[in-house]
Amino acid sequence: MPGGGPEMDDYMETLKDEEDALWENVECNRHMLSRYINPAKLTPYLRQCKVIDEQDEDEVLNAPMLPSKINRAGRLLDILHTKGQRGYVVFLESLEFYYPELYKLVTGKEPTRRFSTIVVEEGHEGLTHFLMNEVIKLQQQMKAKDLQRCELLARLRQLEDEKKQMTLTRVELLTFQERYYKMKEERDSYNDELVKVKDDNYNLAMRYAQLSEEKNMAVMRSRDLQLEIDQLKHRLNKMEEECKLERNQSLKLKNDIENRPKKEQVLELERENEMLKTKNQELQSIIQAGKRSLPDSDKAILDILEHDRKEALEDRQELVNRIYNLQEEARQAEELRDKYLEEKEDLELKCSTLGKDCEMYKHRMNTVMLQLEEVERERDQAFHSRDEAQTQYSQCLIEKDKYRKQIRELEEKNDEMRIEMVRREACIVNLESKLRRLSKDSNNLDQSLPRNLPVTIISQDFGDASPRTNGQEADDSSTSEESPEDSKYFLPYHPPQRRMNLKGIQLQRAKS
């Protein structure tokens, strides 16, 4: 015994090295194993092979420090690593049964499904019991997946119906949107047309105001020219009257000059006056001389005659003075006559000038009245044309509004008919989907599995289990394997941990 101590140590070291070499393959693929292994699927088989106990299973599945599946799978690998070579062998058998691809990844061999460990530990009855539990578990999982698949199909059909409904609603909204954009385009076109009409109206108003201003300026210029013409006519008439007055005065002077006595007659009258003065002096001298030589009687007679002569001279002087006064009065009367005649001529000139001015103003008033009548006639014609244009424009607008209203009513009726057609199509689609759903539900009910399987069917299934373990590994792997896509769409199922009653199965096998 003492001599065998070193050999035992060498043997233990060799086993430990082999164990480390075995687990080295697992550690190399630890990331892939932790990512894809579900500990809840492996722990029943590991407990059946007595590699882990209930406490280890509870620690792996329910520990609060292991929230994710990767953490739980890593903890399970750590626990199996502590179990040595047996933990490695049982772990590979569980991978061979549940995850053939991972088994091939770790060992590089094809899975054979021999279950040597569980046969050694529990015997064939334990293997049968384990396989029966796994089959029931798989059936329950398949039923749950079928239910989930039916629910998802129903949800899918519902979503398809909602999608069709949303599509129809979208078509309806597109119809309304198209109608909205069309009405918006019509409104924009009408606004552009309105702005264009306003611009045209403004341009016409500006043109009309400009023409009116030009016409008023032309009328004012015409009036100024007419006033200048009238003033020139007035000056012409005044000059004609002055010329006529000057002509009359010149004719009067000419007549006075023609009626003036001649120079010879004046000289002859002056000679006669001198001769008479000479004779008068001679007679006076004779009379003076006679007075001195005459007697007293003759002197008395001469005195009487002288007195008579003096009286006659006085009378004559009075007559001469009277004649002079009369001549002066006649001259003054002639001057007054000439003055009055001049005033008369001036008044006649003024009267004729005023008459011509009156005629001029009368003509001017007639011209202004004619212009006013023409302006009123043009204004009435413009008003009439404007009223006709406004009436025609309003009539066109009324007809346009009428046609637009008819078009809008027809478009609304068309839209309502399209919407009604879309709604009826939606109703038809809904009815078809309901009919299809009812038909599929009836087919699913016919094809669904019963909840409680008979014992004979279970025994028959387990009677055929042994050949399947040898020759149909691919079928078992397809039913027991969970793909990543299934984990996305289906909830994980945790079967209840219970042991099955095998009395009925044993009785059935005894009868057979």
Rank of each mutant, 00 (worst) to 15 (best):
G4A: 12
G4E: 12
G4W: 11
G5Q: 13
G5W: 12
M8N: 14
D9R: 11
E13V: 12
T14L: 09
L15A: 12
L15P: 11
L15C: 11
L15F: 12
D17M: 09
E19F: 13
E19N: 12
D20R: 08
W23T: 07
E27R: 00
C28P: 01
C28M: 09
N29Y: 02
N29Q: 07
N29M: 04
H31F: 10
S34K: 02
Y36H: 12
I37H: 01
N38V: 03
P39T: 05
L42C: 08
L42H: 01
L42K: 02
T43L: 02
Y45V: 05
Y45C: 04
Y45P: 01
R47M: 01
R47L: 02
Q48Y: 02
K50G: 12
V51N: 03
I52W: 02
I52M: 13
D53Q: 04
E54N: 05
Q55I: 08
Q55Y: 09
Q55N: 06
D56E: 03
D56W: 03
E57Y: 02
E57G: 00
D58G: 04
L61M: 00
N62E: 08
A63P: 01
M65R: 04
P67F: 07
S68C: 11
K69R: 15
K69C: 02
K69F: 00
N71C: 06
R72Y: 00
A73C: 06
G74D: 06
G74S: 06
R75F: 03
R75E: 02
L76H: 02
L76I: 03
L77M: 10
I79D: 02
L80P: 03
H81F: 05
H81P: 04
H81Y: 05
T82A: 12
T82S: 11
T82H: 11
K83H: 06
K83T: 09
K83I: 04
G84H: 08
Q85M: 07
R86I: 07
Y88L: 07
Y88W: 08
V89C: 12
V90K: 10
V90C: 15
F91C: 00
E93W: 06
S94W: 06
S94T: 12
L95E: 04
E96Q: 03
E96I: 03
L102A: 08
T107R: 00
T107L: 04
G108T: 03
G108S: 02
G108P: 00
R114L: 08
R114S: 14
T117P: 15
I118L: 07
V119M: 15
E121W: 07
E121F: 06
E121K: 09
E121G: 13
E125W: 13
G126F: 10
G126H: 15
L127S: 12
F130C: 15
F130M: 15
L131A: 10
L131I: 09
L131W: 09
M132G: 06
N133E: 10
N133T: 07
E134D: 07
E134G: 14
E134F: 05
I136N: 06
I136R: 12
K137P: 06
L138P: 05
L138Q: 14
M142H: 09
K143V: 11
A144G: 11
A144E: 11
A144F: 10
D146C: 11
D146P: 07
